[in-house]
Amino acid sequence: MTKKTRPVDRRHVLRLIGAIAVYGATALQFLGGFAKRASGSVAAKASAAGSFPTASYDWTKHRWGFGVDATRCIGCLSCVTACKTENGVSMDPHHFRTWVERYVYLEGEERPRVDSQADAGDIAASSGSVDAYRFDDRDDRNVEKAFFVPKLCNHCANPPCVQVCPVGATFRTADGVVLIDQDYCIGCRYCVQACPYGSRSFNEALGVADKCTWCYHRITKGLKPACVEACPVGARIFGDLDDPQSDISQFIRVNRVNVLKPEMGTHPSVYYVGINRDVR
C-alpha cells in the first residue's frame, strides 16, 4: 500500500504557528515562575525595605552565630523552659527546639551513658517530672566523669533539611538562620528525616514541621534568643559573626571550637567548646 501524502497548505502552517505561539507563551510564563523561585528572587524581594516585619532590620548586614560552652552548663534546664515558653513549644517530652544531654562515665565503664531530661527512665525515676535529671540505672557505682551538652538546631550553611523540602517552605535567610514558613509547609516530614541532629520535630496540632529559629522574632529586634537570655552560667553565646567584637566572634577567637558531625558536610553555625568524641 502506498502512503497518502498530505498537502501542506498555508492554513495548516498558520494554525501551527498560532498554536506554538499560544502554548509557548504559557510554557514560558510557567518556566519564568519556576526560575524566579529557583533563583531566590522571591526571597530577595522579601528583604526589601519596608517589607520586613521589623522595618529597621536589614538581613544583609548580619551573619548570626551561636556558641555552646559545655564546660559551663549545669543542666538546670532554664534554657529549655525559656524556649518552650517563648515559642509555644509543646510541653511534653517529645517536642524540643533545644534540649540538654547528659554524658555520664561510670567507674570501670568505657562508654558514656547518655540521656536527657526527656528520657523515659529519668521521667519515671523522678515521678513523672521532665524538669530534672535523675539516675535510673546507676546502681551504686561512682561517677568518674560527667558533663552536660546543650543541643539545638545548628543552622547549617549547607542544610540537608532545606535541600529536601519539596516546596521550599524551609529556607536559609541572608543572615544565616534556617527558618520554616509554616503557612507554606505541607507537613511531609522529609526535613525531620533529613536533619542528622534530630533538631526538627513535627507539630501535630498545626500539621507542620517545627524547629529552633534562634528566636528570629527577638534577634531582628536586637534582643538575644530566649535560651541565651535565660542561661544563668553563660553557657550559651550568641552574636554577629561579622562583628569582630561580638560575644560569638570572641568566643570563637579565644577557644578551640568544634562542630557536631562535621563529616556530614553540613557546616554548622553552632560552635562547641568542652565536648569530646562521644558527643554527636
Partner: peptide, 20 residues
C-alpha cells in the same frame, strides 16, 4: 501529609533540590 490541601504546591512551586 499534615496539610494535604497544600500538596499541589509541590507541583506549582517545586523546590528542585528535593526528590519529592
Amino acid at each position: 501529609l499534615g496539610h494535604p490541601e497544600r500538596a499541589f504546591e509541590a507541583m506549582i512551586t517545586p523546590h528542585w533540590s528535593s526528590a519529592f
